[in-house]
Design a protein around this nucleic acid. Structure first.
Lengths: 300, 300
DNA sequence: GCTCCTGTTTGTCCTGGACAAAACCGTTGT
DNA sequence: ACAACGGTTTTGTCCAGGACAAACAGGAGC
């Protein structure tokens, strides 16, 4: 049986590398050079797709394609950074408090993960749970993802289960009267966890949150802010969002958004962002709480 | 101040029309013809983007681009189908049971919507709630979306709030031992509601559901099925998913998936699908329950 | 009515060229 | 030593125009 082949559109979807980039790499670096099907169209092998995904991951960590392509076959895997386990104890038991949760994910044991999280939530209370468990855990998962020690579907399972937990927690909160905050993300940014964490904190502090899900076209964000009479629009950018696009997107949104509406921007994707005019950066979750207090001080 | 302009990449993101299509339409039909910026690159106006979104919507309903482009400026809006309110009563009160919920969404009153849904859930029980409230409501929202009477952000709000409700309901269920079902969708298919409805029903019947979120690369779906020892992989395709791609995707997935794993496929996007070998179609939610029973009969 | 066939429509892929923005790097000045 | 600066290389994205297969529409024949 012939091996399965993937055409360029499928590879674009599965790797996140645009058709233009795939063709350009082939032209420039000589990789990947796919076979051609009967119509002369590119037909990538599963192996090539896997390698492209690895390259994409390394690039997201700052490596440059020109260097990566020059490397021989198996040298790539060694480039992944090594985060975890700085100090490995003498015991097999979890040395760090979050390890039990990560282990549950690695074992694909959703039930154990949920149970562990529920336990923590009950013990810590919602605010500390978000700040001390969900946020660091998300970071750890992100690191594991970066160094390739976590499969895509393991990360998906983590994300899905964690989203459920947070949404459930939010549902139990009373809806206050503070500023009305519209939470969403821009197209091409599907990550929801950061938004949910912020929403939890803001809702806990009595703000009125309007969750609009992810990937709202910019024009729609402006319309929604109008329709909901929002005081604040809060966006989240993950590390995966191409840095070079953030500024442009924000400028454009600021331009079409009513001036009276605050624009808050957080997430790992904007950590070291040159602050544009009229945009409030939220480098950490705590900053969101400060920003809320500041807003309230200015709007008595 | 100059009007905001959008480059071709932004338009692709916001409309879902590929760069190739945008350029081809310009070549063939003479619309849209954007201005050019200083570098000779296309710069679309907000007006053009809106019109493109309208055209995209009409095409998803079966209209053909050649015809649409030939129409003059404002004739397009009249093409939208008119679903709702076949028999308008003499009263202003909701004539159909679901109207109060839809009205709440239209008023952007999330709290009222959630309250109404909770009420129904309590009264109907989870299974009937899914079958008699969530499913028809989703359909009604879809129709409103098609005929353009619902804004994008209104649909997003509905989706987000409904997802929360269902996830909350699922969380309360005991996790049974029946077949292990892996629920997800393929890349380019971000819609989650259908999956959640199926998951609710299957979980109610005691199946062990593994929710992996949306947009899993095909190779990863196969890996996840392996790692989780899944008996069944269930996919969902919305109407928005291009029909002509469904068959190819399913063939490819079937090819890389272990033969012992069932492949179930549901959603509005596969309503009239020529059934491929080794793929179980689920044209309705009820069919999912039947399929579960059939599976159990075959695996004593 | 139905099926089969043919011409048209439509989306996607191809090549190869151009260029701007970002990243890098060596130099100079403090 | 280090910071600022300017030139060079790298990299992604855009463009034009050509080709073609798959989907569709519509008519001829049964």
């Amino acid at each position: 049986m012939a091996e399965p082949k993937f055409n360029i559109a499928v590879v674009e979807r599965d790797t996140g590398l645009s058709k233009d980039v795939l063709r350009m790499w082939e032209r420039r670096y000589g990789f990947p050079v796919p076979e051609r099907d009967g119509n002369g169209e590119r037909a990538y092998s599963a192996e090539q797709v896997d390698r492209l995904r690895l390259i994409k991951r390394l690039m997201d960590q700052g490596h440059r394609p020109g260097k990566l392509m020059a490397l021989p076959g198996d040298a790539l895997a060694d480039l992944a950074p090594r985060h975890g386990r700085e100090a490995v104890g003498q015991t097999d038991a979890p040395v760090e408090p979050l390890d039990d949760l990560i282990d549950a994910i690695r074992r694909h044991d959703g039930a154990a993960y949920q149970q562990g999280m529920q336990h923590r939530l009950a013990r810590q209370g919602l605010m500390r749970f978000v700040l001390d468990t969900v946020a660091p855990l998300t970071r750890r998962i992100g690191e594991a993802w970066e160094d390739g020690s976590l499969e895509v579907f393991e990360e998906h399972l983590f994300t899905e289960l964690t989203k459920r937990l947070l949404r459930q927690a939010i549902a139990g909160l009373p809806t206050g009267g503070g500023p009305r905050v519209l939470l969403t993300s821009v197209p091409e940014e599907p990550h929801m966890l950061g938004l949910l964490m912020v929403e939890t904190l803001l809702a806990l502090e009595g703000a009125e949150c309007v969750p609009l899900g992810t990937e709202m076209p910019l024009l729609e964000i402006a319309r929604a802010a109008e329709a909901h009479q929002a005081d604040i629009v809060a966006l989240s950018f993950s590390v995966a969002f191409p840095q070079r696009h953030v500024t442009g997107v924000l400028q454009q949104l600021r331009q079409i958004l009513a001036p009276r509406v605050d624009l808050w921007v957080g997430g790992m994707g904007v950590r070291r962002l040159a602050v544009a005019a009229g945009v409030v950066p939220l480098p950490t979750l705590e900053a969101a709480l400060s920003a809320l207090n500041a807003w309230r001080a200015e709007h008595p």
